[in-house]
C-alpha cells in the first residue's frame, strides 16, 4: 500500500523581511521509485511555490543538490524515498552560505577554494598547436582521474568537524584537489611551493583525522589514501625547510 510521506523541511528566506528560520511540514503520496528530486518538485509545484532548492543534472553528476537528509549530507537526486522512513527531515548543508530554504552557495565557496589552492596546472611551457601532445603513462592518467572525480557537492565539508569550527579550512575537497595536482607530472610546483601553500591549519594540518568526509563522499573518492600521501609529501617539505634554515 502506498505510504503518505511527511516532509519536515527547513524554511528561511533571508531576502524576506522578518522571516524566521522554521520547519514546515508537507505531506506527499509516495509513488513507485520516487526520489527526492521528483518529490521536492511535486511539493513545490502543488504546495509551496516559493520553496528553494538546487538541482541541475538530477543524475548524480553535477553536485548541486547536496542537503542534510535525516541528518546526513548526501545528494538528494539519487536518494529514493523507499530507503527512508515515513518522516523525512530536510535541512540545508551547514557551513555554506544559506541562499534560502535548502539552497546553499557552494559555487562561490568552491570557486574561492580553487583560487586559494591555485587549482590549475603550473607550467612554463607554452601550448604548441602543431606539436604532438606530451606523453603520459595511462596509469598516471587514471590516478589523476580518481581524484578529479570530485563533483564539489560539499558533503565532505558539511560533515567535517574542523570546518564547522574553523571556516578557513579547505576541507576534504580542498585536500583532494591538492592531491590531484601533486599526482600530475604536468604541474611543476615543487615541494617547497606546495609546503608554503598548504602546510597551515587551513590546509593539510587542519585535518584532525575523524574522516567523516570519507563516510559521506557520494563519489567514494579515496580520501584516506590521498590525505596520507599529502602528509608524507608535506613532512618531507618540513625537512627541506629546516635544512634551508641551517644552511643560512
Amino acid at each position: 500500500m502506498a505510504r503518505t510521506l511527511t516532509f519536515k523541511i527547513f524554511r528561511y528566506n533571508p531576502t524576506k523581511d522578518n522571516d524566521e528560520p522554521h520547519i514546515e511540514t508537507f505531506e506527499l503520496e509516495e509513488t513507485p521509485r520516487l526520489n527526492l528530486f521528483t518529490a521536492l518538485h511535486r511539493i513545490r509545484e502543488k504546495q509551496a511555490p516559493d520553496l528553494m532548492y538546487d538541482f541541475v543534472c538530477r543524475a548524480g553528476i553535477c553536485g548541486s543538490c547536496a542537503m542534510m537528509i535525516n541528518g546526513r549530507p548526501t545528494l538528494a537526486c539519487r536518494t529514493l524515498t523507499s530507503d527512508l522512513a515515513d518522516t523525512i527531515e530536510l535541512y540545508p548543508l551547514p557551513f555554506f552560505k544559506l541562499l534560502g530554504d535548502l539552497s546553499v552557495d557552494t559555487g562561490v565557496w568552491f570557486h574561492d577554494m580553487a583560487k586559494r589552492l591555485e587549482s590549475w596546472i603550473h607550467t612554463s611551457k607554452e601550448f604548441d598547436p602543431n606539436a604532438e601532445e606530451e606523453r603520459m603513462d595511462n596509469a598516471t592518467a587514471n590516478k589523476i582521474y580518481e581524484s578529479e572525480r570530485c563533483i564539489e557537492c560539499g558533503c565532505c565539508v558539511a560533515a567535517c568537524a574542523t570546518a564547522q569550527v574553523y571556516p578557513d579550512f579547505v576541507g576534504a575537497a580542498g585536500l583532494n584537489r591538492i592531491g590531484r595536482f601533486l599526482f600530475d607530472p604536468r604541474d611543476t610546483r615543487g615541494d617547497q611551493e606546495w609546503f608554503e601553500l598548504v602546510s597551515t591549519d587551513a590546509g593539510v594540518f587542519g585535518c584532525i583525522g575523524m574522516m567523516a568526509c570519507d563516510d559521506v563522499c557520494p563519489k567514494d573518492l579515496p580520501l584516506l589514501e590521498v590525505f596520507s600521501y599529502i602528509r608524507r609529501k608535506m613532512n618531507s617539505g618540513v625537512k627541506i625547510a629546516v635544512e634551508d634554515l641551517q644552511v643560512s
Binding site: 598547436p129 606539436a131 600530475d184
Partner: peptide, 18 residues
C-alpha cells in the same frame, strides 16, 4: 585534434595508449 591536445595542456587526464 588541436583542441584535444590543448585540453591536455590545460590539465585533462585523457586516457592514454597502452
Amino acid at each position: 585534434p588541436i583542441a584535444m591536445r590543448e585540453m591536455a595542456h590545460f590539465g585533462v587526464p585523457w586516457n592514454r595508449v597502452e
